[in-house]
């Protein structure tokens, strides 16, 4: 794979990664948000494949397949299952499946994402400076997705949206790891993946309990505990 091909394919994968992350802010339909997340997982896998082909490393390509399978296959599957669980009693299905009243409206969120992209670029300068190259220059993209993930976490009110926000952050960190050093040691990578998988499972169970206890997954209802 020659230099310009490598740079271009990498940029394409990063572009798709970023776009999927940003579009999460735009969609209200939770099923569509999960689809976008899966798409981002595919882009992340493709990014790692490109890095692996560049370095001629079979190991890295194998890791890429694993990363893709977890983030584009298993995690979206789990979330879709949480989404398909029918709500108990009176038909609030329409309310449940959509992010109806985010704390910040969609248009403002999108403009905020633009600001976050600039912040991410400014913050990531030391990282790029240490070893400039096509891969490290894409670190701002990963950090933008990280900040967008935070934004989703803070401003969205459905339980599932928060899970997606958390996973966006995690995707972004994984992308940073691969872009800077082609990944952390395998033991750590496996541990991190397991932790993330278990965290999503735990959150899924808690979502079910929340439906049982609160009759919905609107996080605005979580007001029992305060000082």
């Amino acid at each position: 794979m020659n230099d310009s091909m490598y740079a271009q394919w990498l940029a394409l994968a990063c572009g798709a990664f970023l776009l999927a992350g940003v579009l999460v802010l735009w969609r209200r339909d939770l099923a569509a948000i999960v689809r976008l997340f899966a798409l981002q997982g595919v882009a992340l896998g493709a990014m790692v494949v490109v890095l692996g082909l560049r370095q001629g490393s079979v190991h890295l390509v194998a890791v890429a397949v694993g990363v893709g399978a977890l983030r584009a296959g298993l995690l979206p599957y789990l979330m879709r299952r949480a989404l398909d669980t029918p709500p108990p009693g009176n038909g609030t299905a329409g309310e449940e499946a959509r992010e109806t009243r985010p704390l910040v409206n969609v248009a403002t969120s999108l403009l905020a994402a633009a600001v976050l992209a600039l912040v991410a670029y400014a913050v990531s300068q030391p990282i790029v400076r240490l070893s400039p190259g096509p891969a490290t220059q894409a670190v701002p993209v990963a950090l933008t997705v990280l900040l967008v993930g935070f934004f989703v976490l803070v401003t969205r009110r459905r339980a599932l949206s928060q899970v997606v926000g958390f996973l966006l952050i995690d995707n972004a960190i994984t992308a940073t790891a691969f872009l800077t050093t082609s990944g952390v040691p395998l033991v750590v990578e496996l541990g991190v993946s397991l932790d993330v998988l278990l965290a999503v499972l735990v959150l899924q169970v808690l979502t079910t309990r929340m439906r049982a206890a609160f009759g919905g997954t609107d996080l605005g209802e979580l007001r029992e505990l305060h000082d």
């Binding site: 990280l146 995690d170 800077t180 979580l222």
Partner: peptide, 29 residues
Amino acid sequence: EATEAAWKYVVICSVGIALALLGVVLLHY
């Protein structure tokens, strides 16, 4: 109350600790 506490606990701690993971990644770099 318990469900609410568990949800907030997992979300805030996992996100907070995710920052530490980014720190680990950068230190590795």
